[in-house]
Nucleic acid binder design. Structure first.
Lengths: 223, 223
DNA sequence: ATGTGATTGAAACGAACGTTTGACACACAA
DNA sequence: TTGTGTGTCAAACGTTCGTTTCAATCACAT
């Protein structure tokens, strides 16, 4: 390649610009022309490097999700070893949430958290599909961990409670600005440590509420 | 108007089709041609009745948000009177959540819940702006109610906890299908009564956790 | 019957979209 | 020096977009 020394190369500048603009306008809300202009590269570069607009979108996620998944796996494995397979639910939450908020403090990482949160409930099915494919393998291992941490919960109870966990995590990562409108602009949702410090106690308390539905007899736990 | 007896008129069919397609593909992910074809009306009808694509989107929301806001206002007013201005947080949650899930059982209303949840963190700022404008007046009254229900919480604590509340509500309304992928297709997030029954205990427990940050002296409560 | 205002219809508008092309510039090994 | 692969560039491809136009059509009061 012939770019060089100073600054990131075209591929990285493209990913950075796409990360920001996809987060701020959505996949269908921003054009490759806008992205490539912002990145300072030629329009054709996007298709050259990433085959298509969707390929660029996927590449933005692949760059960030890999490290998050690795951190989550490592924390979960360590937790499982330490707790002999019966972890406290608060510890599972910590292993799940910390990598999601703490992974890298670069300015691009904050943009990606917004993009990831917003894409998790994006109306476009192709957007959600890409996101889920990348997060699912590790997420399903955490579902197992939650089952072990809350053995008294029926699948239905766990379903609804994980909806609260995922929803809260996603809403904070998305940082839509709504609550700042309602409570004051001085408040800030982008501090990873504050997010962790507040979310874990809240969600732990919710997970520890006594079961609502009765646990079905034939629900085996998948050892 | 000259349509009649049988079936909804062009305007309503347009709103119904738009409600579904916006929910499934997003504002920028579906075209007026697709919407008008699905509604069985001429392409020009969308601009004729609603001035623009954005006008149609806004009209979809206005049709549904009005009743939700009215229900919320009524429940909150009744709660405030009954509790002499010091409501239990679980009751505030109930007054906030029940109208959001229960408002109408028509098939269109279920589609709108998805649309509303997904639009709350939509990457496009123009989408979020429309949604917030319609929900905010009543939502800010609920913020006050939460302040009264949790007088020991600092603004920062309340901020993070309401993020969990909004996030959980929005995630369940959005019904992205993610948790069904992880836990099983037999589970169902679209039952309003089940959502209410599970969310309220979970979120109440989270709201009642002891304060994390210390309450600032000069934070006055707005009587 | 006639005029009027509201609605529908087919067609076209210019603009913007994702993508492709082919010529050109560069680095580096042979 | 020559050949090869990689990257850049301006330009164009065909398609689709939101929106507008204007004539045709309808229900209905006059």
């Amino acid at each position: 390649m012939h770019p060089n020394e100073a600054g990131p190369d075209a591929q990285d500048r493209l990913l950075d610009a796409a990360e920001r603009l996809f987060a701020e306008h959505g996949f269908h809300g921003v054009s490759l022309r806008t992205i490539t202009t912002e990145a300072g590269v030629n329009l054709a570069a996007a298709n050259y490097y990433f085959r298509s607009k969707e390929g660029l979108f996927r590449a933005v996620f692949e760059r960030r999700v890999g490290p998050v998944n690795a951190d989550r796996e490592a924390l979960l494995q360590e937790l499982m070893a330490r707790s002999a397979g019966r972890p406290a639910v608060g510890e599972v939450l910590r292993a799940f949430l910390e990598p999601a908020f703490r992974a890298s403090t670069s300015p691009g990482a904050e943009m990606f958290r917004k993009l990831s949160g917003r894409s998790s409930v994006d109306p476009s099915p192709e957007v959600r599909r890409i996101v889920y494919e990348l997060y699912d393998p590790v997420s399903s291992r955490f579902v197992d961990a939650f089952k072990r941490a809350c053995p008294d919960l029926s699948r239905e109870d766990l379903f609804w409670r994980l909806a609260c966990v995922f929803g809260a995590m996603m809403y904070v990562r998305a940082d839509s600005g709504r609550l700042q409108r309602l409570l004051g602009d001085d408040l800030n949702m982008s501090d990873p440590e504050a997010a962790i410090a507040h979310l874990i106690p809240f969600l732990t308390a919710g997970m520890e509420v006594p079961p609502i539905t009765t646990r079905d007899e034939n629900e085996g736990e998948s050892t």
